[in-house]
Simulated assay, not measured.
Amino acid sequence: MEKKTLILGVIGSDCHAVGNKILDYALTEAGFNVINIGVLSPQEDFINAAVETNADVIIVSSLYGHGEIDCRGIREKCDEAGLNDILLFVGGNIVVGKQNWDDVHRRFTAMGFNKVYPPGTSLETTIHDLKEALGLF
Rank of each mutant, 00 (worst) to 15 (best):
S122A: 11
A26D: 03
M1C: 10
W101I: 06
K3T: 09
T125M: 12
D14C: 00
L123M: 15
N93K: 14
E132C: 08
I59S: 14
E44L: 11
H16L: 07
E2Q: 13
D85M: 03
S13K: 13
I127G: 03
D70N: 14
Q43E: 02
I94C: 06
N36I: 00
S122L: 06
K98M: 12
A30R: 05
L130M: 10
A17H: 04
L134Q: 03
L130W: 04
T121N: 09
E76F: 10
N100E: 15
T125C: 12
A50Q: 05
F113W: 13
R72C: 05
I74S: 04
I11Y: 08
P119K: 14
H16W: 05
R107C: 06
T28Q: 00
V95G: 06
I86Q: 09
G92I: 11
S62M: 01
V10F: 10
A50R: 02
Q43N: 10
Y117K: 05
C15Y: 09
L40W: 08
R75C: 12
F46M: 04
F137K: 11
S61V: 05
S13R: 13
L87P: 00
L23C: 02
T126P: 00
I74G: 07
H16P: 10
N84Q: 14
E29M: 12
I69P: 03
V18K: 15
N48A: 12
I22V: 15
D102C: 01
H16F: 04
S122K: 10
K131V: 03
K21L: 12
V57Q: 03
G91L: 07
P118N: 11
V116E: 04
D103V: 09
V39E: 04
N84A: 14
V39K: 01
L134F: 05
K115P: 01
N33G: 05
H128T: 08
G92Y: 03
G97C: 11
D70G: 09
H128E: 03
D14S: 07
C15N: 12
L23E: 00
G112V: 07
E124I: 10
A133G: 06
F113Y: 13
D103G: 05
E29T: 04
S62F: 05
K115A: 12
V116R: 11
R107E: 10
A50S: 10
D79K: 15
I94G: 00
N84R: 15
G82A: 09
E124H: 12
N36K: 08
L134S: 08
E29F: 07
I127T: 03
N48E: 12
T53D: 10
D14E: 01
N93F: 02
D79G: 05
K115V: 02
G38P: 06
L130K: 09
F137S: 09
G38Y: 02
